[in-house]
Design a protein around this nucleic acid. Structure first.
Lengths: 230, 230
DNA sequence: ACCTGAACACCGTTCAAGT
DNA sequence: ACCTGAACACCGTTCAAGT
């Protein structure tokens, strides 16, 4: 609060409201995300941070979904490429784990990535990396193409699941529900007991990636896929 | 607007504001969902429909997330069990496809199911069915337990992806981005051309389920999984 | 215990008007 | 073209007060 109404125009030592740019807006959004989570990355809050009105942002950003997608691509740029050791399967798992770890820190971002497919430069790099590794493993290109989608979707969805909304209580509720299930109506669930929820998250994630890779390797894509998507 | 202030108390031919119950609230929520989508299933709108204030609903429902979870379980009850023909793999795929088809009609519900894990009776039935089919296929119980999670997550996430938010334009943008990718920087993506996005949704879904099942069958769970899930 | 009105603290997006 | 204030049409949730 060292406001002094002197030096009217020539000096401007304090940043005198930098001009709006798309990059500036996204950078500010990332800063808010880091400090307070995606919930606060709203048009209104962002505008306030940039010392303008929310309407001004719509010159650079189509809507909130697009804003969030841009933020995700930005964060994707911070994912360090996995070290090169090990066979292709291990490296594939490491790349995916690094991507998932980043999303785990921002589960709400993962949730929005599920609907607003990112298409920024960093996302393309990730796809290219995954395709390269699958190719190295001898997976046919068409199969690899669909496989990449499956792998990224799993990573994203798993992170999205970790959005907590009074979470701990809900988990307890689910545990109790499963435990209380009648042996007569749901014999398999009853027989499994806690196994349904057992295992550390990293173990389950690793298992899932390995299962996905094994499935992708072995499952052929239809000869001539019908047309385009939706 | 056939309001007549007669018949003061004894008759009440028009339903004179039925008492609030959890079931009544959820039924009203399902009706709004069917008519106008999940976006309109808000506490305020629901209260209006039930001729009360939003605060009243909090006696029966913890919050919006719990409301949506209850709605999902309700819809799950409408999924017709798949006919019994075919081998276990085919039947498994059919059950999952039926579940996914229901979610496809309410993608926003799928999105919320990803974070607020349902635990209602219909959801338990679905889990039991999947476990039974995997058991029939000789998949070890622990593996089946984690597999069920993987399968349901894929179904849910795929449906959630179909939330449209100016969708068609976004797809075009992604298509153009992929097409315009430089051969030098992203050779695999360039080589694949349209294959990355090729295939009808049903084909891709079917492929994904088959790949998942193949992977689940072949991937062993760690001997003694560490502790519990967070 | 259940129900309520009113309030608190927010949202996204559009639009007419200015520069 | 870019920027803005103000408005429109909403949200979830809490709280004190009533029955």
């Amino acid at each position: 609060m060292t406001d002094r109404p002197d030096t009217p125009r020539s000096r401007r030592e304090r940043p005198a409201k930098p001009a709006l740019t798309r990059e500036g807006i996204i950078a500010a959004a990332v800063a808010i995300l880091r400090a307070e989570g995606l919930g606060k990355v709203t048009m209104r809050r962002l505008a306030q941070e940039l010392d303008t009105g929310p309407a001004s942002l719509y010159v650079y950003v189509r809507n909130t979904a697009e804003l969030h997608a841009a933020v995700l691509d930005e964060l994707l740029g911070t994912v360090r490429p996995a070290p090169a050791g090990g066979d292709w399967r291990e490296r594939l798992e490491r790349v995916l784990t690094a991507y998932t770890a980043m999303l785990f820190e921002h589960p709400t971002l993962a949730r929005s990535a599920l609907t607003a497919r990112p298409s920024g430069p960093h996302y393309l790099n990730l796809i290219e990396t995954l395709l390269t590794l699958l190719d190295e493993g001898g997976v046919p290109p068409a199969q690899a193409a669909w496989g990449v989608d499956l792998l990224l979707q799993h990573a994203t969805a798993t992170a999205a699941e970790h959005v907590e909304e009074a979470s701990e209580e809900d988990w307890d509720a689910l545990r109790r529900t499963l435990a209380g299930v009648a042996d007569r109506t749901h014999p398999r669930i009853a027989a499994l007991g806690g196994t349904l929820l057992a295992g550390a998250p990293e173990e389950r994630l690793s298992w899932a990636f390995r299962a996905l890779i094994a499935g992708i390797e072995r499952t052929a894509v239809p000869d001539r896929p019908q047309g385009d998507t939706t």
